[in-house]
C-alpha cells in the first residue's frame, strides 16, 4: 500500500463569515492523491475549485481541516515554504513569470526553489547549459533566446515557460489552475500536450482545474467534479476511460437533481 502524497481531511472554508455576504466556499472536502496520480477537476464557476487550489498551496488557510503532503502536516505552513514542494501554473500567463527579467534569470529563480538562495551567481555557465536543455524539450526555440526578456514572449510561450519553471525541479505536487484557459485554441492545445508530456515523463502528482470537459477527459487517470464547495463526483481510472461528455453531464444532472429534490423536501 503506497501512502497518500496529498491528503485533505475535512476541509472547510467560509468567506465573510457572519456577514450578509457569507459564502461557504468549501465544505467537508476529503481528497487523497497517490503518488503519480493525475487528477482533473471540473465544476462550474464558484464551485470552489480555485479555493481548493489556494488551500493546498497555502495562499488560504482552511477554517477547519488538515492538509498533509507526503505524510507531513502542512496546514499551517506559509505559502512560500510550501512552494518548495508544490509547483504551480496560473491561468494568467502574466502571473507565472517575471516580465522584466530574462528567460535564464526566470529559470534561475525557479531553479533555486528548493534550495537556500545564496550570494552565488544565479546564472552560471553550467546552469545555462542545463536551462538550454530543458528549454529544448518545449520545442519552441526558446533555448536560443536565453537573454530575451520574458515580457517580450507571447502568452503561449510564457505559459510554456511557466510550466517548465513549475516542474523542472521536480516538486512533489503540480497544481494547474486553468492554465490553458487564457490561450487561443492552438496555443491551448500546445500547452495541453506539453503538460501531458511533462507529467508522463516526470510522474508528478498533479491536480489540474479545467473548464474544458474534453481536456478533463483526455488527461489524467482520475476525475473529480465539484459543485457548491463539495466534491460530488469522483471517477477512477477504469471508469474514466469509458466516460463521455454526455454521460458526465448526465451524472451531474442526476446528482444535482437528487440534491434539489431533497432540498425541496426539507424546505417543504
Amino acid at each position: 500500500m503506497v501512502s497518500d502524497l496529498l491528503k485533505l481531511q475535512h476541509i472547510h472554508k467560509v468567506f465573510n463569515e457572519g456577514t450578509i455576504d457569507e459564502k461557504i466556499a468549501l465544505q467537508e472536502i476529503n481528497l487523497q492523491l497517490k503518488p503519480g496520480d493525475f487528477v482533473t477537476v471540473i465544476g462550474s464557476n464558484g464551485a470552489g475549485k480555485s479555493t481548493l487550489m489556494n488551500i493546498i498551496s497555502g495562499v488560504l488557510m482552511p477554517d477547519y481541516g488538515q492538509v498533509a503532503i507526503d505524510g507531513k502536516n502542512v496546514t499551517h505552513l506559509p505559502e512560500f515554504q510550501r512552494s518548495k514542494f508544490i509547483g504551480r501554473v496560473f491561468q494568467d500567463p502574466m502571473a507565472g513569470t517575471a516580465p522584466t527579467m530574462t528567460i535564464e534569470e526566470n529559470l534561475a529563480i525557479a531553479y533555486s526553489r528548493n534550495k537556500r538562495r545564496t550570494l552565488g551567481r544565479g546564472v552560471t555557465k553550467k546552469r545555462k547549459e542545463m536551462f538550454r536543455q530543458y528549454l529544448e524539450t518545449l520545442h519552441l526555440g526558446l533555448e536560443n533566446r536565453l537573454n530575451a526578456k520574458v515580457g517580450l514572449l507571447s502568452g503561449g510561450e510564457r505559459q510554456a515557460l511557466s510550466l517548465l519553471m513549475a516542474t523542472f525541479t521536480e516538486p512533489k505536487i503540480l497544481l494547474l489552475d486553468e492554465h490553458t484557459a487564457a490561450l487561443d485554441p492552438a496555443r491551448a492545445e500546445l500547452i495541453t500536450n506539453l503538460t501531458k508530456e511533462i507529467v508522463e515523463r516526470t510522474q508528478l502528482t498533479t491536480l489540474m482545474v479545467t473548464h474544458n470537459m474534453q481536456q478533463a477527459l483526455e488527461l489524467g487517470n482520475r476525475l473529480i467534479m465539484m459543485d457548491k464547495g463539495q466534491i460530488i463526483l469522483d471517477i477512477d481510472e477504469k471508469e474514466k476511460k469509458n466516460l463521455t461528455i454526455e454521460s458526465l453531464l448526465e451524472q451531474f444532472q442526476k446528482i444535482r437533481g437528487e440534491q434539489m429534490a431533497s432540498d425541496r423536501a426539507i424546505l417543504g
Binding site: 498551496s57 505559502e79 512560500f80 515554504q81 512552494s83 518548495k84 508544490i86 504551480r88 496560473f90 502574466m94 502571473a95 507565472g96 513569470t97 517575471a98 516580465p99 522584466t100 527579467m101 529563480i109 525557479a110 526553489r113 528548493n114 538562495r117 519553471m165 513549475a166
Partner: peptide
Amino acid sequence: DNKRMIRSLSAN
C-alpha cells in the same frame, strides 16, 4: 516584478 510568482517559487 511579480510577487505572486516569486512566492510560488518559494521565496519569502
